[in-house]
Measured scan of single mutants.
Amino acid sequence: MSGNGNAAATAEENSPKMRVIRVGTRKSQLARIQTDSVVATLKASYPGLQFEIIAMSTTGDKILDTALSKIGEKSLFTKELEHALEKNEVDLVVHSLKDLPTVLPPGFTIGAICKRENPHDAVVFHPKFVGKTLETLPEKSVVGTSSLRRAAQLQRKFPHLEFRSIRGNLNTRLRKLDEQQEFSAIILATAGLQRMGWHNRVGQILHPEECMYAVGQGALGVEVRAKDQDILDLVGVLHDPETLLRCIAERAFLRHLEGGCSVPVAVHTAMKDGQLYLTGGVWSLDGSDSIQETMQATIHVPAQHEDGPEDDPQLVGITARNIPRGPQLAAQNLGISLANLLLSKGAKNILDVARQLNDAH
């Protein structure tokens, strides 16, 4: 009898209710805020589980004197976190989706994509230029951005401005803007500013005609071990179906173009009346040469937790077992079709030249 009692006690200790789920994140304040929001949602869904947040620095956090596009290494903000995932030191990792490459290392998958916040870019102005827009900034004003995508589009749109690289986390960039006289304004992701509670610093939100956004911008991705079915089931509740389908289309477009950090590629997606609209573009580094096109596809946005595919093969690095396969494939095909259209119009040449120029500098 006593033996059975011990077995029952052991089973209770090993039951999922007692389990601590370890969540990996970057150390920056924004990353911690984003991770806290994901953990809060998981806690609400699984009140019996405990969650421990483990923060670590990544290569991208450490190399702050070089433009991201020049470092010449993929997975700048993800490699150390993936290493911890691989060694079973954490069970899942919360990322900004735009930091996750469209091809993940073997053994990993994006197990959830959370509801997207505003994906557009924002302009934050130096205190002396508050009330201005990019259009009304004085001639030769210097605007800071760490992104080739932003610089290429904005140089084309605002030729009277000069664009220079600015690195560091959000706090560091804002301090550089406010305390030094080098920059009249800087460009940042609206979602990051909003998550930090800095709505009052948003001086201008850039519309798609001015600057399309990065693939996955404004959404959070939760990376897990691809074979860890328990954790895949656990994080599945975080999937937002519309965000998922938009981001599958965007990531398929980028992957098929073979774009990345070192080339200016941008997108804009919208879901309306059962249609998914995808606009994508590529630019030369100075913005003088560009190709942009829009395509659409009829896609039914499923309700969360309709029964999805059981075999769960990944699409552009994403596993969404609780979302039907048909809409996911339709979104992926839309991204591939748009990429093929741009490639047929000469996108590869623009991107190759951009890559060579970026590598040469």
Results as ranks from 00 to 15, higher is better:
R149L: 01
L64C: 12
S45T: 13
H268N: 15
R149V: 01
V263G: 01
T102N: 11
S165R: 09
P101D: 01
S262Q: 07
Q229S: 03
A112E: 01
G308P: 05
E242M: 05
A67M: 01
L206T: 06
K140N: 11
Q275E: 05
E89T: 10
D312H: 13
S45E: 10
L254F: 01
K79H: 12
I291A: 13
T190H: 15
G218M: 01
V20W: 08
R246L: 10
D61Y: 05
P313N: 08
I350V: 13
Q217Y: 06
N88W: 13
Q275D: 03
R255P: 03
F51I: 12
Q275Y: 01
L351G: 01
W283A: 04
P105I: 07
K140G: 11
D273G: 01
K157L: 12
E82N: 10
Q314F: 13
D273R: 14
Q50Y: 12
T25R: 08
L338M: 12
E250V: 01
G216I: 01
P241T: 08
L315A: 07
P106F: 13
L148W: 06
K43Y: 08
E209V: 03
V215W: 01
T109A: 06
A55P: 11
S28K: 01
S146Q: 14
V94H: 06
W283C: 07
L177V: 12
H95A: 09
N171R: 08
V301G: 12
K43C: 08
T58H: 01
N340L: 08
L342C: 05
H199R: 11
D311T: 06
L68M: 14
R173H: 03
A266G: 04
P127V: 07
C247Y: 10
V224P: 05
E179M: 10
T145P: 01
W283R: 07
T102Y: 15
L238V: 07
A297S: 06
A249L: 04
E139L: 14
M271E: 15
Q229R: 12
N322F: 14
L357S: 15
A320H: 01
Q296I: 07
G308M: 04
K132H: 10
A152Y: 09
L161Y: 11
L100M: 09
S262R: 15
R149W: 03
L97R: 01
Q328V: 05
T243E: 05
Y213G: 09
M271R: 07
V23H: 04
L76W: 10
K79L: 08
Q314W: 10
Q29E: 07
D359N: 09
E310I: 01
A189M: 03
I63F: 13
R26T: 01
F253H: 05
T25Y: 01
E179P: 06
P324V: 09
E210K: 01
F129P: 01
S45R: 11
A219D: 01
R173V: 01
S165C: 12
H83S: 12
K87Q: 14
V103K: 13
L343P: 05
A360S: 11
A112Q: 07
M196I: 13
T145H: 04
K176V: 11
M56P: 05
S141N: 14
Q50K: 14
E73V: 09
D178L: 10
S28V: 01
P127K: 10
V353M: 14
I63A: 13
L100Q: 09
L42K: 01
Q155P: 10
G107D: 12
A297Q: 05
Q180Y: 11
R355C: 01
K70L: 07
L97Y: 01
I54A: 07
L68D: 09
R26W: 01
L49F: 05
L154W: 07
T133V: 08
L206A: 01
K43M: 08
V93W: 01
T25W: 01
V93I: 14
R26H: 01
K79T: 09
V265S: 01
L177W: 01
L329T: 15
S337K: 05
Q304R: 13
P101T: 11
P302V: 14
R355A: 04
N118I: 13
K79I: 09
D36V: 12
A297R: 01
E258R: 01
G218E: 04
G144S: 06
M271K: 10
Q153T: 05
S147L: 01
S147H: 01
L137E: 03
R175M: 13
E82Y: 04
Q194C: 03
I21T: 09
K272R: 10
H300Q: 11
V124S: 06
E310F: 01
P105Q: 11
L64D: 08
L338W: 01
D91L: 03
D91E: 13
P138H: 09
N200Y: 08
A112L: 07
D230N: 11
E82W: 06
G107A: 09
V215P: 07
D359A: 15
T133E: 12
F129N: 01
H207I: 07
I63T: 01
D65C: 06
L42F: 09
L244R: 03
L234E: 01
I187P: 01
K98W: 01
K132T: 10
H160R: 14
L170C: 08
G326Y: 12
D121M: 01
K227S: 09
Q194A: 13
E86L: 10
M295D: 08
V353H: 15
V143K: 04
A112W: 01
C114H: 05
L154C: 12
L351K: 01
F158E: 04
K348E: 13
K345P: 01
H83T: 13
D99Q: 01
M56C: 04
